[in-house]
Design a protein around this nucleic acid. Structure first.
Lengths: 338, 338
DNA sequence: TTTGACTTCTAAAACGTTTTAGAATATAGT
DNA sequence: ACTATATTCTAAAACGTTTTAGAAGTCAAA
């Protein structure tokens, strides 16, 4: 049976509030009583009941992360895993719980509302933002604290941490053009995600900047998996005029693309250049190693969490918007076109 | 401001308990009142306050997963990610929270105790079991519900879900010996983990079964990362009498080993055979594709969660111990030795 | 018309904490 | 010696829910 304030109060012969205030170190308790109470509490192994405390304080001391049901397998994505580890590290350190759950798309917003109304969390972390994101609109409407990892297409007056994907992919295009490539292909995740859309913009901007023209068939939109990357790359490589460089918009896609190229008997880095995005651990180890954009996934997770915790604790309305530029890491999957 | 039972009670002109019992559907409330109360509650958007409910019920309706601090980056391991997704899916479906936190090794047991005494969770999921696991011993001593993913070395009278790693690796050895290999090397994670230890046993048992002798230098113990796999493989390949087959005890290690072999100018699957364990998505996409043992990571996560939820809800003491055999998937990283 | 049995509801207590308002005692100032 | 002021404590209320015990009312049977 758990030890309660009442147990301690009985033992020390004081009232429950006295014990409560003694443990909290209030100065209307004499040092003598305070020390005695604290000693007894420690000896009895007292740990406050969380729910009683939260009921009274009307604070959940918890952060919610509701995973879109359709994204259940996202956990196998190393980038997401690292992001999550950063979030957990930071929330843990702040003594807050991280409540992770999953919701099917059709009930997603209801789940958010239930968390809010049931006062289960003090704030949310939103991942995989859409260009028009119903979750963000909902939370903003209810003035409920949240930080998103990623922006919307516009109307971004809320706290977020994001990459500069547009800028990043432009660096990649610069790199490829510098090497001499003029026919570039692109493999993207669904464009309803801001992240994907923005990276594609970077691709198009890059082409325009260098006076290269874009043909529809050079952009293949698919999902985030390696398998899809392979299939998409095959489509690009089998075009009448195949690109000499393929800009895959994440590393898993890029690795799939490398596989596809090798299936077609091409030497990656010589016959065809392939790039990724995120710099997951694997990128360095793939064969050939992958030219990609490095992102500090773990740190981004801590930033998101930190941002939200600040917002919750300070009740401050000041906006914190962080955009991190990825850094180009040139490895062996890119080279001068033959 | 959140809607409470009192708000509803005022509105319908009944007492708070009546409203509470009407919403819960007790039959000492007239159908008329029940329907009316439920309608009003819905209209007002009532959602029960979680903490009040939990305080009263003395149940947390939550499952704890305390990640060893040293394992923070585990999230980047795709296998762990999938396991986690299974756990989340199942706990979510059961209406329970999953409370994930991190604890440094020196304070780990204290964190467990605080969760227990503070009644924050109804049970724990233990991951990465040690051969002697202090966490398991602690929980068992306090008769607190838990399910572990993995066993201890012995004394396993508790609920767990585990792989049959020993058996699995024996299959791998059989496969390699069938191909004609007689000099086998092995790359393992630290042996204090039961998982690693057990897989190594499988390796040794396999050798013995086939009358092959084992030399110490053919076993390299390192950590779980690709980088380590590469370094370990280099050590094996640079031996005076290098093995013709390397049994890496997880896929990341195996992929590192493949890289090492390629650095030494060896063609994997011909000059040297390499195997993994887990069959992460990447295994199929690596070059060459990896012969490995498949494990249903996501399903294992659901099993662990299901097991714990049963235990919590039924208060039953019946033991549930599940051991799953991995299945050998032969791909292109293994072949007849030259 | 009284008893007994149902049906439907409510008052009170409980879960364990914190906050507020104020009581009791001690200390100092005149 | 009496008032004013600190100091140290406690009683009561509050957070929102559920459970327990029992009250009030209705109805049928005797």
């Amino acid at each position: 049976m758990a030890v309660t304030l009442k147990n301690i109060a009985d033992k020390v012969g004081k009232s429950v509030p006295t014990v409560s205030r003694a443990l909290a170190g209030f100065d209307d308790i004499s040092p003598k009583t305070r020390d005695y109470v604290q000693a007894v509490a420690k000896e009895m192994g007292y740990v406050p009941n969380n729910f009683a405390r939260k009921l009274q304080s009307q604070k959940a001391d918890a952060v919610g992360l509701i995973l879109p049901g359709s994204e259940n397998l996202r956990f196998s994505d190393p980038f997401f895993g690292l992001l999550l580890s950063g979030i957990i590290e930071r929330t843990s350190a702040a003594g807050m719980d991280l409540s992770i759950s999953a919701a099917n798309d059709d009930e997603e917003l209801d789940v958010y509302m239930e968390h809010i109304k049931g006062q289960r969390v003090d704030g949310f972390i939103i991942v995989r933002t859409h260009r028009k994101d119903k979750r963000i609109e909902l939370l903003r409407k209810h003035k409920f604290p949240f930080v998103s990892f990623g922006r919307m297409e516009d109307d971004n007056n809320f706290n977020f941490v994001d990459e500069d994907g547009n800028w990043g992919i432009e660096q990649v295009v610069d790199h490829l053009v510098d090497l001499g490539h003029t026919k570039l292909g692109c493999i993207a995740e669904p464009l309803l995600y801001t992240k994907s859309f923005s990276r594609v913009q970077g691709f198009l901007n890059g082409l325009k900047k260098h006076g290269l023209k874009f043909a529809d068939e050079n952009l293949v939109v698919t999902n985030y998996r390696q398998r899809s990357g392979r299939e998409a790359a095959l489509r690009l490589l089998d075009l009448p005029q195949p690109p000499t460089a393929i800009v895959a918009l994440n590393d898993l896609l890029a690795i799939g693309a490398i596989q596809a190229a090798q299936e077609r008997g091409l030497k990656v880095g010589r016959d065809v250049s392939i790039t990724g995005f995120d710099d997951i651990v694997l990128a360095e180890m793939s064969n050939p190693s992958l030219t990609t954009l490095h992102q500090p996934a773990h740190e981004m997770g801590t930033l998101v969490a930190e941002n939200l915790i600040q917002q919750i604790k300070n009740q401050s309305i000041e906006q914190s918007q962080i955009v991190l530029k990825p850094t180009l890491v040139v490895r062996n999957s890119t080279g001068t076109p033959v």
